[in-house]
Nucleic acid binder design. Structure first.
Lengths: 162, 162
DNA sequence: GAGGAATAAATGCATTTGCATGCAACAAGT
DNA sequence: ACTTGTTGCATGCAAATGCATTTATTCCTC
């Protein structure tokens, strides 16, 4: 008798959920213990630092990070409050704005990458050969309909999450 | 030059985060659109329905679901509020209690499984052959330090998530 | 069996999310 | 230019979460 989702598919689903939640928790905890803000901040800072002249529109950030609009808005609030980014007026579209990363923001991003990369190594790298990691990536890609294009470039100096 | 986390490991990390978030969102949305409560409720109901005589200790539930203690406590509150479960006194340990699933709870769990399994099939099953799904499971297992024992049994009539 | 550590569960409080809505500025059609 | 619709962002409010603490009970160890 054939079941609708095969046992294999269901098992994969369960693991995808459980393993990512465990690994994410572990990494977030490592960062927190090292005294850093949550991963989402890192992601935002990384995106900003990569943007030409260190600034981008909130809408762009939103698309890159795959988070809801209001969430982006408030994330930016917090970054600005902490002096990690600044809002700039957008001359070509007065509804909008630019968000520019500050020096402090760039520094934090770099510092975080130390702890962050160590965590990735600890929780992923050390448990999987490069070949297996690549296999895993390949399989995941088939589910996610791509993680965008820039992923290999991403891995160059900082990995965006979520 | 060798980097600390290899590009492969980093790429796997990124995908693990992004893909699970996308897939989870998609599944949650499907459930919500079908008028059902969040996945966490399903997981709890499933655990309860599987327990002998349909009841278990909150602590157990907590361990199964891998969520914090206070979170379990409040999840149970909600289930009880909706008449899906009931708190029972625990005679052998008066600090504790038992949570018992109600008939309504069992029914909801079954109904949800229809929508839930369809979503799994849609977002996982249809995108991966059984063999590939099994490979994916295997690779994920190496990261997560196990998803408990009961996973194949889990797949029999309802998949717990997270 | 008395005192202290450990465990089960709940809860107050601050922060964060989700949802819907608001409010501008732009774009298009007439 | 004037309605109508759309886009970019902010925000009020309710619900959910995280954290630390509280309360009650049980488990040790002496």
């Amino acid at each position: 008798m054939k079941r609708k989702p095969s046992t294999e598919a269901t098992a994969a689903w369960i693991r995808l959920m459980r393993v990512q939640s465990r690994v994410l928790d572990a990494v977030e905890q490592d960062l927190k213990k090292a005294g850093f803000p949550p991963l989402a901040w890192y992601d935002a800072l990384l995106e900003l630092s990569r943007a030409p002249s260190g600034e981008m529109r909130p809408v762009e950030l939103e698309k890159q990070m795959l988070i809801p609009q209001y969430s982006t808005s408030r994330l930016i609030d917090r970054l600005v409050d902490e002096g990690l980014a600044a809002r700039r007026e957008c001359k070509i579209d007065k509804r909008g704005q630019f968000v520019e990363i500050t020096e402090a923001g760039r520094e934090l991003q770099k510092k975080m990458w130390t702890a962050y990369s160590a965590a990735i190594e600890k929780h992923i790298g050390s448990k999987l050969s490069d070949a297996d990691a690549a296999k895993l990536s390949g399989l995941l890609d088939r589910l996610g309909c791509s993680c965008g294009e820039a992923q290999m470039q991403a891995a160059r100096d900082g990995a965006p999450a979520r």
